[in-house]
C-alpha cells in the first residue's frame, strides 16, 4: 500500500490499479481472507451493543471497512457485485428513514416522537419495547453508516 506512484494529475477518474483485482498476492489473500471476519465482527458489535461497548455506529463502520477491503482486493469493478455503488446512497437514505419511521410510529400511537414504549409491537412490557426500539433504531444507524462510508470511499476514489 505504501508505494504510490505520482500519478498524472490530469487523470481525473480512478486509477486503473484499483479498478481491477489487485496484483499483489498478499493484499489479495489477506483482504479477501479477513473481510468476512470483519463483516462478522461488525454484525456482532452491532447486535451486542446492548450488553457491551459497541452499537450501531461502530458496527456500521466495521461492516463498511469489510466491504472496503473487498473493494481493495477485488477492485472496484468486481466488488460492484457485492455492493453496487449506485445503491449506496439510496440505501443509507432508507436507513435514516427507518429511524424516522420508528419515531413516527410512536407519534401515530399517540406519544411523543421516538417514544419507544408506545411502539405498535403487541405483548411486550414498556421496558422491552424500549429495548427493541433501540435495536430498531440502531439498525437504521448501521445501514446508514455502512452504506454512506462506502459511498464516500467510492466518491473519493472517483468512480
Amino acid at each position: 500500500m505504501s508505494e504510490f506512484p505520482e500519478h498524472d494529475p490530469k487523470d481525473h477518474c480512478l486509477d486503473e490499479s484499483l479498478k481491477e483485482p489487485t496484483d499483489s498476492l498478499i493484499v489479495h489473500a489477506t483482504a479477501r481472507g479477513i473481510a468476512p471476519f470483519i463483516l462478522l465482527i461488525g454484525l456482532y458489535v452491532f447486535f451486542h451493543g446492548h450488553y457491551s461497548p459497541g452499537g450501531g455506529f461502530q458496527g456500521g463502520v466495521l461492516l463498511a471497512v469489510g466491504f472496503l477491503l473487498l473493494r481493495l482486493s477485488l477492485g472496484v469493478r468486481l466488488s460492484q457485485i457485492v455492493m453496487p455503488h449506485r445503491l449506496t446512497l439510496r440505501a443509507s437514505a432508507i436507513g435514516a428513514l427507518l429511524f424516522v419511521a420508528v419515531g413516527l410510529s410512536a407519534v401515530i400511537m399517540g406519544g411523543n416522537f421516538l417514544d419507544y414504549h408506545l411502539l405498535p409491537i403487541p405483548g411486550l412490557a414498556p421496558e422491552y419495547l424500549r429495548y427493541f426500539g433501540i435495536l430498531l433504531v440502531e439498525v437504521g444507524v448501521t445501514v446508514t453508516v455502512t452504506f454512506t462510508l462506502v459511498a464516500i470511499y467510492d466518491e473519493l476514489l472517483g468512480c
Binding site: 500500500m1 504510490f4 500519478h7 486509477d15 458489535v45 461497548p53 459497541g54 455506529f57 461502530q58 463502520v61 466495521l62 463498511a64 471497512v65 472496503l68 462510508l149 464516500i152 470511499y153 473519493l156 476514489l157 472517483g158
Partner: peptide
C-alpha cells in the same frame, strides 16, 4: 472503541485515498 474503529479503519482508508487522488 469507536475512535479505534474510525481512526484506523474509516479515516485511514479515506485519507489514503484522498492523498492518492
Amino acid at each position: 472503541f469507536t475512535e479505534a474503529v474510525v481512526g484506523a479503519g474509516a479515516v485511514g482508508l479515506l485519507s489514503i485515498v484522498a492523498i492518492r487522488r
